[in-house]
């Protein structure tokens, strides 16, 4: 049996952390892209498109992320599409992230006074011009803090990918535990690494919130 020194454990965990970060980034980029598209669909005011977005949001907010991952991973392979744990994890995390972001952003756009739309309209600006010059610059200001705050949920969500066999921080933690039988030490270290990843983000989110609350 191989002996694991504390240093070995930490080194292995840090190596796995790269994959957690990579998966988080991929999910966040995928999630924001899809959320942007959904937000655009919603802003058109077309009732059919609105309905599509609402159903999407309800489905992915209303079911556990783990089930979404299972369906992506096992479900698709039953249907004959071989999908790697990595792709299944990204796919399901993208659904999850976008479903929450689109709602967060909707809230941000809705907090802008209706008068901003009306004033723009009275000045002769079209829908897209109003969006680009008036609504989005203000909405982005409001949305930045909660979006950064939500990225913490994405990072923690990646831990579930360990269950479908993707080797990231939690998975390596489990493997090390199986080898060392020191669950308290190993999982404490895992938790500390997650905390070190998440805390700066939630701290930054609070800073942003303060900054944008005070000034324009």
């Amino acid at each position: 049996m191989i002996e694991f020194s504390n240093l070995d454990i930490i080194r292995n965990l840090l190596f796995a952390t790269q994959w957690t970060i990579l998966l988080s980034l991929a999910a966040f980029i995928g999630g924001t892209s899809v959320a942007l598209a959904l937000t655009a669909m919603r802003l058109t005011g077309n009732s059919a498109m609105n309905m599509v977005v609402r159903v999407y949001v309800e489905i992915f907010q209303g079911t556990p992320l783990l089930m979404q991952m299972f369906i992506c991973f096992f479900g698709l392979s039953i249907l004959g599409y071989e999908i790697s744990a990595w792709s299944a994890a990204i796919l399901s995390l993208t659904f999850f992230t976008s479903a929450f972001l689109v709602e967060i952003w909707r809230g941000c756009i809705d907090t802008l006074p209706k008068g901003q739309w009306e004033a723009s309209r009275c000045l002769g600006l079209g829908f897209l011009q109003t969006l680009r010059h008036i609504i989005l610059p203000q909405a982005i200001r409001v949305a930045t803090a909660p979006t950064v705050g939500f990225s913490v949920q994405v990072i923690k969500g990646t831990a579930l990918a360990s269950i479908i066999g993707f080797v990231e921080l939690t998975k390596v933690g489990t493997m090390l535990n199986n080898a060392t039988f020191e669950p308290f030490k190993v999982f404490s270290l895992v938790a500390i690494i997650y905390f070190l990843l998440c805390y700066p983000l939630s701290w930054y989110s609070k800073v942003l919130e303060k900054k944008f609350n005070v000034s324009r």
Partner: peptide, 30 residues
Amino acid sequence: ALSVGMIFQNFNLFPHKTVGENVMLAPTIV
């Protein structure tokens, strides 16, 4: 909008733009 202007009870200025930019916006874009 080219022949009718409107002024509102609560101003509805664009808060993220300066006074000058508020006034310049429509002439530039429209």
